[in-house]
Design a protein around this nucleic acid. Structure first.
Lengths: 348, 348
DNA sequence: ATCGTTCTTGTAAACGTTTACAGGAGCCGC
DNA sequence: GCGGCTCCTGTAAACGTTTACAAGAACGAT
């Protein structure tokens, strides 16, 4: 069947006794006589011909590749996003180039400059920090970019974001309704976009629902990870005695669960815990974790579709989509402890 | 600084008043007079010139891209592998193209045939199932492939695998030494490579340590996921009363923990649980999960390095690396329940 | 029978690089 | 002062496609 040597249009043409133009036409389904079609197809299959992607790209000016750049691919929420993007993009006939930018904004800039090399047709970018310089680069990019996450007003780029302010509101409302008054906030770095907006949401909700507002109810982990969350949660429990903790992240929430368990306190009886992102982890831990679903999968899917749309129609109007958060109540904040998870999701 | 219009060698040449060959040479650091060098660099930066990746690829016959194909990107163990590969590959100056093949072997075959289109220089493949047809395709591939996982004898391909038979042996030895006699096995699909070898390892270890060998101590989940593991674990507890469960996977192990908790049994006092892969999840759950570290990160890193090596030297001798498993004892199998995790890993 | 259509096919240019080759300038030693 | 050397630079070919254009064949209509 497939030979092991490289094969080219010219070879096929020679074998079929036609010109390379005819071969190209037949293989691309353009008009050709039955005779030529037959001979070309025969020759092509004899030689196991496969068109060269690079040459084609150079000629048609498209690579059929899309880049996805996320800050921290180790975070489960990015993983689920990646999976969604991967699927949509593949369905659209594109390959996915992965770009792990890491926490350093410089990498994002590097990536953006590198984009002009034209190795992808479009980019989905999920920046942790949005600097002016980044925005400037985004504006003058030669290829379509859709941003996954918040963007300053007036930047004319497709983007899809979660409304985490409302998300925090949902969490605090839920807790306040149970009579929780000392609701703490375990945040990640506040100099990141998610960290900043979630803090804003927390403060607004504390105000709205009239729960305790004390500085010692807020703590900031060095990173949105379990490892960073653990000491932060410990510190929080040391410095205050909350009756609920809402966390910027499921990983941080799991860290809170652990810190609470180490002190012999009970969840949710003594302290309720609410996470954010509603990753798979929320359902794995014990007790299962109440979490604010910011629609990561949906955001990712939407972003990918927006990009495909723009690749198809570069002049389409700019669209900014906001995904509405949903609260997934589970054991870690249930009023009656015996309650089952409210919803079971398949994990794949 | 960078202009927003596309720029080409010819434009730079014109502006600098030299030939395109000279421009290319200067930009690639080849010999050139100070005068020309100066003028070219000036012109290039004026125009914000960036070389076109596609054209370069076509000419030099390399794409600087490497593909990574995994069956199920949603599995946390693949995620960690992906991160490692991503890093090594990036350090080597390559981009990473992600290919989620899914459970269907047909997709892997598609991918392999597509590889001849030459959009990547090499491939790291982690197949769930290894069919003859797959092996045949692997042999006649035109680009280097390194296989992440077991491979039939005599296939001359770089590969790196875990010795999960020894891994299972470690797990059972640990449990048997505690006096556990009814050690159950919660496996994933046995028609996959991991499923098959882990079963083999379990049976051999049961033999070696003389623990109970009963059919009802073995159960097979439909997939290596939490969702699939839950009913399987329930069934296991229904049909037998093990004093330990070793699982093919951390996700399955977490499912076992949950099923056990639902019955009001205690871990590890009533039933010890051991997982496999030692993913981050093992440290998040309560109780923390003893797990066999199959060196996923190390395997991935090694595979990536092997591929880079072969890309640099196509005639290097074929290397097959086996990574030695290590047991990470944690609370879920501790003899004395108050014991702390034996080792704390940073999560990033 | 001739002209005009339509349909098929081949020739050749183009995409943006890299690089083999050759021509020319400068320089040295004799 | 001239052959030979080195060093620099330009011309042009090549990578493997796609596609505009023209040429030719076949055929119908007048």
């Amino acid at each position: 069947m497939a030979g092991t040597k490289k094969s080219t249009l010219a070879l096929v043409a020679e074998r079929a006794g036609v010109s390379i133009a005819s071969v190209s036409r037949v293989l691309n389904g353009l008009s050709a006589s039955a005779d030529v079609t037959e001979r070309v197809q025969q020759a092509a299959s004899d030689l196991g011909y496969v068109p060269d992607a690079t040459a084609r790209s150079l000629k048609v000016g498209r690579t059929e590749q899309i880049a996805l750049a996320v800050a921290d691919a180790a975070n489960p929420v990015y993983m689920s996003m990646m999976n969604e993007v991967s699927r949509v993009v593949a369905d659209g006939g594109y390959r996915l180039v992965l770009s792990s930018t890491g926490a350093d904004p410089a990498n994002e800039l590097d990536l953006l400059s590198g984009l002009d090399r034209g190795f992808v047709d479009g980019l989905i970018l999920s920046p942790l920090r949005v600097t002016d310089e980044l925005v400037e680069h985004l504006r003058r990019s030669r290829i379509p970019i859709v941003v996954l996450g918040s963007l300053p007003e007036g930047v004319p780029l497709d983007n899809v974001r979660a409304d985490s302010v409302i998300g925090m509101r949902l969490a605090l409302k839920h807790l306040a309704k149970q009579g929780r008054r000392r609701i703490a906030f375990l945040n990640g770095p506040v100099d990141t976009v998610p960290g900043a907006t979630r803090l804003r949401g927390y403060l607004a909700a504390v105000e709205e629902y009239g729960t305790a507002q004390q500085a010692d109810l807020q703590v900031e982990a060095d990173d949105f990870t379990f490892a960073a969350g653990l000491p932060a949660a410990e510190a929080l429990l040391d410095q205050s005695s909350p009756d609920a903790i809402v966390c910027a992240n499921d990983l941080l929430a799991v860290a809170a669960l652990k810190a609470i368990a180490r002190r012999g306190l009970r969840v949710p009886q003594d302290i309720a815990v609410v996470g954010m992102d509603d990753t798979e982890i929320a359902q794995l831990v014990h007790p299962t974790l109440t979490s604010v679903d910011l629609g990561a999968a949906k955001r990712a899917r939407t972003a990918a579709k927006l990009l495909l749309r723009r690749l198809g129609d570069p002049d389409a109007e700019v669209r900014q989509v906001v995904i509405e958060p949903k609260l997934r109540v589970r054991e870690s904040s249930a009023k009656d402890a015996a309650r089952e998870p409210s919803r079971t999701e398949a994990s794949r």
